[in-house]
Amino acid sequence: MTEFLIYKAILVVMVFVVTLLVAMYSTYAERKVAAFFQDRVGPNRAGPFGILQPLADGVKFFMKEEIIPNVSNKFLFIAGPCIAMTTALMTGVVIPWGDTLIIGGQEYSMQIADLNIGILYLFGVVSIGVYGIMIGGWASNNKFSLLGAIRASAQMISYEIAMGLSIIAFVMMTGTLSLNEISAQQAGGVGSEWHLWNVLYQPLGFLIFIICAFAECNRTPFDLPECETELVGGYHTEYSSMKLGLYLFAEYINMFISSAIISTLYFGGYNFPFMNDLGLDHNMITILGMVAFFAKIFFFIFFFMWIRWTIPRFRYDQLMNLGWKGLLPLAIFNILITGLVIVLKGYL
């Protein structure tokens, strides 16, 4: 039992550290990628190629003066970023970062908790994440913050519906809510055992899901909650120092986790093509699988940034139009198609 606890504790700490590290360097990557897309150089002063820039930013955040507005609700003002950060970090629990490692005859899973309702858990936690933004924006007692917060909550709630419906079609197909099983179902890919990635079976669902993921992460083109051009800084206008840092950081963690979820659900998770034909032992395959998984995650993080510099921000009515009149019927249509295919398959 103690061994189990120690192993889980190590895993938790590792996931925590890796999440923070990836989020940290996402800020750097964001700036660098943005620079490349705009034919610039990007941060290159701190360390070689500017790789120490996140550290400099972190130190800057800690050193800055902490301002809590007099008219704000102080408890909620502090609680806001805490909730945002906590919920962002909680989602990493159910993601299968790799297959199992066999050490000394003992099998160790690379997933902190294999919940059989993994997807539901994710949705639950993500929907709490709205409160972080909502509470923070409301507690600031600032018009711009409030507008940003209201936009954020309306947007996230609207897109969660389409996202949930796209997942329903997905679950109808996989027949499980456990992320570990979903990953295992896609094992092999091209190779000796044909288990193709889910994106090929659910292209429409994937499209809806990724659009909703963008909206859930408040990334461009859905960055209305914090659009600088209209709302100063949106929900975090009044925030300064590390509280602002936590909000921004939570956004990057969300991006990382979203990328991980997209990879797990639709792109085979820790599986990679020809994994059964290499003739390597189990541990080696697991490690390679983790590398593949992170490669997929990094690609999607890059994709998030890529889209940011491609598509301009939606207008608010366009956002709502797309969510309710576009994605929602499409998601329902997707469910119908999926159901039809499943029924027809039963007759074959």
Partner: peptide, 10 residues
């Protein structure tokens, strides 16, 4: 945007 990604920085 992808083409710009590989352009030389000015």
């Amino acid at each position: 945007t992808f083409r710009h990604f590989f352009k030389r920085a000015a």
